[in-house]
Design a protein around this nucleic acid. Sequence first.
DNA 1: GCCGTTTTCGGCCCGACTGTTTTCAGTCG
Length: 572
Amino acid sequence: MPVHNKEITDKLNEVADLLDLKGENEFRVRAYRNAVRTISGLSKSVAEMEDNDENISSLPDIGDSMVEKIEEIVETGNLKQLEKLKKEIPSSLVEIMKLEQMGPERTKILYEELDIDSISDLKKAVEDGKVEELKGFGKKTADNIKREIKEYSQKGGSKRIKRSEAEEEIQPLIKYLEDKMDDVTIAGSFRRKKETVGDIDILATSDDVENAMKAFTEFDEVDRVLAHGEKKSSVKLRTGLQVDLRIVGKNEFGAALLYFTGSKEHSVALRKTGQEKDLKVNEYGVFSGKKKLAAKTEEKMYKALGLHYIEPELREDKGEFEASRNNNLPKLIELNDIKGDLQTHSKASDGKYTIKEMVEAARDLGYEYYAVTDHSKKVSMANGLDEKRLAEQIEQIDELNGKMKKIKILKSVEVDILEDGSLDLPDDILKELDIVICSIHYNMNLSKKKQTRRILKAMENPNFNILAHPTGRRINERSPYDLDMEEIMKEAKDKGCFLEINANPDRLDLDDDNARLAKEIGLKLSISTDAHSVDNLNFMKYGIAQARRGWLGKEDVLNTRAWKDLKKLLKR
DNA sequence: GCCGTTTTCGGCCCGACTGTTTTCAGTCG
């Protein structure tokens, strides 16, 4: 059983945590974290690269010493260094360090002075008043720790929430702030359109900074104020969402927006780029000595550093700098490039609206075509269609197509891929359809080998067009099923099949890394909403965001094409 | 521990805020 990248990064991360606790050189600690970032950004398995004698030491931040450690993990599943560290320092301290406000220093002091090596120990010590007596701690710090422990035990650790949820949650605050200050802009991972966000970073300008900050901290939904400074304040909303507000000068807005959009990794790389040119980069601008070269807009900031503008979705330090220097950045897909939706449901299965209602809504979005893809019979929970009902639906669509202007309804189905890789409906009805969407809803826990084979087998069916929600994951709820995604993508490309980015904000499956892998392989993807209601058709924007994070352009996506062109592509 | 057209040694991103100090360490992003 080959070692997953995550198993490698988990071990290296733990080494970093323990070295940190030990008080090791911070740059040595950082070296491990840098290596972790490199590996987790790979779309390939390190273990397989090792097997193929690929040179992993050429990867950034992976040096000779790191290669040895990785090889040891790949070969033995263990890392002696880590085992040794665990004997020196209880690894339960790592959990304490994950609490907000608790870093390696404080954790170490608590362990050394009070012998605290678990959260429950810490809780008791705080309650007994022992923590506040420690040098460098004090009453307020002790109270903060107490509250963090309480929140931690309620939430079971900090959890990122779906971006779509955060978007909804934050609207009232944004509206409120727009009344009180200018240029209110959400930055951070929200602006980078990450599928989940940890907190919300807001940027604004104001002529009266003091009152603007005050207004922010006094917002009705604020549960408590974490920090209240003249440039930055942080609050926790009643919903548990943390929001940071920074008020910056109008002339430095671009510098600040760039800085606070991140990612952290992108910002670090940006400052390194500056350093190489003897320029200093911070949230106030690009500087040569004391001379300010740029600050007002992000475009000017990048330009001063010799770079082409990089879209927020690409700012992860995953190759965008090289592409920017070489003027080789992709022109990313946009919402209005989409010409139709290729996965939707109607009342016939588990949708909420009739085909006609759904199609009318799609037409109002300006779509040229629209596929009706109700479930097949295996999905009985969703009242899936058998041959007879699907045949009736085909007739119904033919009739509707005769009446509806401006939009073509595609006859389709979301047919289940059964455990043995066969499809849930017979070929003679599938071949009557304009397009066939295939997906898995049962037997999700097969081994990687079996699950991969199941899908490869299904693609042998000449009616197979698109594999929908290819990994089955649901964000924060269900892990992706175990698959050899690269093999599936390569086979799909060879066979003339396609994969989907499911735009439902709970799924967003394929994810950004896999979407990018598809692009590298040359496999085109569809972006579809999986809408079960008229409102759901608006999920498309989330799918577009995911595609943009995967570096996809208009040309990489199936349903940016007119139907006559798409039809040719679907022909196998 | 990683890295290298000024370097194989000596750097390694940078600033804001809090709380505990009395000038700054710790944490965060």
